[in-house]
């Protein structure tokens, strides 16, 4: 089923120093397939954010290897965080255009875009995503859901190889959340995205995922669950979500 857009092998990572130090990831093996929407599910503190930061290249693991078989070096994943983190002094269009002026995008495309051109591209994308009317607003004039859509636009404008999302809808109310979930699925179909979506919400995981990875803290054993007949086996999922005993192997893949 397709090739891997990203492959983690034997990733281990300890964060903090001295008595504060804490092994967050232990020997994690995981592949992200091109075109899939992979959900990473796990309780708070199980290392989901850390795992995404490793995938995004923001944190270097102590051991293990990250390979992106299909992509040149400058083509990296992009990440969306739980908070939109928009620059408050810039308009929505300028926020979205931000990544187009950065070195990575210049290197990947081999060209330097001028400011008006970047702004035009941002407006075009905002229009395509159905939020063109927000282009001239400032972040403090947006609702939570609008701000998060803008943050997603800011990440995908640079056409990242994979869209990493760290509990992107976790801070939104229920109605807004289901609205954005639907919007994300449309966006994914329209732009053929490969997505890694982190959540601690079982319903959200079942709704969005093609495949689930369950991260069971504290040593982040990874278990993968495939969608069978269009749904996930709920009992199976719940079993994976229960805390693991000492005799559980550190890596287990359920086909």
């Amino acid at each position: 089923m397709g090739t891997d857009a990203l492959r983690l092998s034997g990733i281990s990572l300890t964060l903090g120093q001295g008595s504060e130090s804490h092994q967050v990831l232990e020997n994690v093996d995981l592949g992200v397939r091109t075109g899939e929407l992979l959900v990473i599910l796990g309780p708070s503190g199980s290392g989901k954010s850390t795992l995404l930061s490793v995938m995004a290249g923001l944190i270097h693991p102590d051991a293990g290897e990250i390979s992106r078989p299909e992509d040149p070096d400058a083509h990296l994943p992009g990440i969306v965080f739980q908070e939109p983190l928009l620059l408050p002094w810039a308009t929505v269009a300028d926020n979205v255009a931000l990544g187009l002026r950065y070195r990575r995008h210049r290197l990947r495309t081999g060209s330097r875009m001028r400011a008006p051109e970047r702004r035009r591209a941002a407006r075009a994308l905002l229009g395509e995503l159905g939020i063109g009317h927000l282009a001239d607003r400032y972040p403090d004039q947006l609702s939570g859901g609008q701000a998060q859509r803008v943050a997603i636009a800011r990440t995908i404008i640079t056409e990242p190889s994979i869209l990493l999302m760290d509990e992107p809808f976790g801070a939104l109310d229920l109605a807004t959340r289901s609205d954005l979930q639907r919007w994300l699925l449309e966006l994914r179909a329209a732009r053929d995205l490969t997505i890694v979506f982190v959540t601690h919400d079982l319903e959200e995981a079942q709704l969005l995922g093609d495949r689930l990875v369950v991260l069971n803290g504290p040593l982040s054993q990874v278990e993968t669950v495939e969608r069978a007949d269009g749904t996930f086996n709920r009992t199976d999922l719940l079993r994976h979500l229960t805390p693991v005993g000492a005799d559980t192997p550190s890596f287990k893949e359920i086909a």
């Binding site: 983190l85 950065y102 990575r104």
Partner: peptide, 27 residues
């Protein structure tokens, strides 16, 4: 300054000078 903005600039692949120009100085 919010450390989140720095995380965003880094994740979008900003060179250090670009981070300074787009996040630190206007901030």
């Amino acid at each position: 300054l919010s450390p989140g903005w720095t995380k965003v600039a880094r994740s979008l692949g900003a060179a250090p000078i670009e981070h300074l120009q787009t996040v630190v100085l206007p901030g």
